[in-house]
Design a protein around this nucleic acid. Structure first.
Lengths: 350, 350
DNA sequence: CTGAAAGCGCTTACAG
DNA sequence: CTGAAAGCGCTTACAG
């Protein structure tokens, strides 16, 4: 080993020797105990500084049989929505003195299973997971069984009572529909999203409920699932417009899909917001910078991340292995892609 | 403690008892040692399965005096560029059996100092940091001094020999300039970016060198620093166009700045790529979806992330506390924002 | 207010 | 091929 390698780590016994006390006393000073005489404390602190002592949390965790490590498993960190979620989570954990492991599963349940195992072995005190698509329902049973606090972000796991933190998908979709109804639209499509997505199911549910409440026949609403990508959005729009009685407006699974829808519209020479109204979901950062700026359902993702972290923190600290779901508020961010009241031009196209 | 709490963790001694062997043998089985008789091995593995044993890496790390934890400190995880970097890093570490801690500093050197301390205490075996703006040059000296492998991503630290992994900023800027020269532009601006940014300095250097090589007077190039945001880009463009002899094209600090420049152009009724040529840097995912699609210098960020991880992995495994810099290849991704050969219209505006 | 001792769950020589 | 013993760096009762 080279000089200065981690092997040379100075420990509390060396501090104890230098300060002329026992290592118990050093430990006490380290945790800021009141019961150490100030002069002793100062001596110990001086030694700590002089010798460049670095606290070994691993050893402490082992001895105390609990750790300050927490895990977060994210299904797609490159997605800005997820990145914001991760930042919110990370921030809260950090502030509480916990250090977060992160794993990006890239929507792979296999990878996810590996990292869950690894995090268990590492001894995380709690875990937040935004589950990969296709996650088996029992993926987290092992952790839950041994009492490790787990909170799901965004995506619910069927048949399990694991607490979930996510936006109010039903209400968001409803708000979007109501806006379009106000503008005079009667043929509104729900576009895009993976068929097996729980989030899509919730949004679709709100969408359909709003149509029914308005006395419209939900059977007429077009809603073919697609990948949740720009391509998927473009494809969904094409399918919708190919129908006999094409829609004049769409609520999209999310903003990315909405971008694809706008793209496809422009390719057809239709101006989003003028020839066709589109509303997204999530309000990702690019939504306001898009052309045209995207009307969408705004979600405070970072806030949801913070919420999720606080939830597991509370579970860790109370020892209770359950928590309430948290359904975050959403609101309609009106921009240009949904246009104004339905135009003559749209009527004629009908 | 509730039943099933982490306290009840089953340990190797219980496995040993169940399998009728000593814990040394269990340990040997765990690490797949060849020297355990197959029948014994099977008995141990059966016990492991039956009792639901989970390996405690914390304890192992303590005993072996080295850890499988690594850290990554990212200056802005919400930035898609950084997110991709993080994903590349995470992926490589994961594949090598290391588990990565992540910290997002949100460009705060104070936060950064805290997380560096925390990661040291946690005993990371290595660290990758994309330093926050304003990071003091000695920020990593402590880690380096005790022999923890550190690699910088993207941003070099002055006066230190810490290995850096990043794109070829000089060459990228040169490629951009050369393209614009080919198209007939002679008054080319460098727009945006923080004044104190090392990356900006490198890109600017390449930019100026290319102008000089073409026999153009670099003194004429306009290059006021701004924030590296859309707003900064818009502002930079306005300043540039306010000059006596305004430019007809711009190389931007990065894609985000370029988006801002395009925005400001459109606000003035100028079509990017027709009335004014703009080239970005980084090739973030949105660049190709922008309107118009952005010509930019493509950087393989995820690849750089993987590279950085491999670099610290090698340092960890060889015990050598140094490594070569890695300057990643870049290339020009030609799209519409830089237009074709300079138009009559541009000539007249001159 | 401080110290001696035990122990957290592993791994690592060292015997046999 | 397997076991007994020591020890990684801490914390935690327990004495004094």
């Amino acid at each position: 080993m080279t000089a200065g390698s981690p092997k040379d780590r100075v420990t509390i016994v060396e501090i104890a020797a230098a300060a002329g006390v026992s290592k118990s006393t050093v430990s006490l000073v380290l945790k800021g105990s009141e019961s150490v005489r100030p002069t002793t404390r100062d001596r110990v602190n001086a030694a700590i500084r002089d010798l460049g002592y670095v606290y070994n949390r691993g050893a402490a965790n082992l001895r105390r049989a609990h750790s300050n490590m927490v895990g977060m498993i994210i299904h797609d960190l490159i997605n800005p929505f997820c990145a914001e979620l991760a930042v919110g989570i990370e921030r809260s954990f950090q502030a509480a003195g916990y250090v977060p492991f992160i794993a990006n599963t890239a929507e792979s349940p296999v990878r996810q299973a590996e990292v869950i195992k690894l995090m268990r072995e590492q001894g995380v005190a709690g875990l937040i997971v935004s589950a990969a698509r296709g996650t088996p329902d029992d993926a987290l049973d092992g952790l839950v069984a041994v009492g490790v606090p787990v909170v799901l972000a965004m995506r619910r796991l069927k048949g399990r009572r694991i607490p979930v933190v996510g936006p109010d998908n039903r209400r968001g979709a409803r708000l979007a529909v109501e806006r379009l109804l106000e503008l005079g639209h009667r043929r509104i499509a729900f576009l895009g999203g993976y068929a097996d997505s729980v989030v899509r199911a919730e949004r679709l549910e709100g969408f359909l409920a709003a149509l029914v409440d308005a006395g419209l026949d939900p059977a007429g609403a077009i809603h073919a699932p697609t990948t949740a990508t720009r391509e998927g959005g473009a494809q969904a729009l094409e399918m919708a417009l190919a129908q006999r009685n094409p829609p004049t407006a769409a609520v999209c699974f999310n903003d990315i899909v909405a971008f694809g829808v706008c793209l496809a519209l422009r390719r057809r020479g239709i101006q989003p917001g003028r020839g066709f109204a589109v509303i997204g979901f999530d309000d990702v950062q690019d939504a306001m910078h898009a052309d045209p700026p995207l009307t969408t359902i705004a979600v405070d993702v970072m806030g949801l991340g913070e919420r999720a972290a606080q939830s597991v923190l509370r579970m860790i600290e109370t020892g209770r292995n359950s928590a309430e779901d948290h359904i975050g508020a959403v609101h309609l961010a009106v921009r240009e892609s949904c246009g104004g009241p339905i135009s003559e031009r749209l009527e004629k196209r009908a």
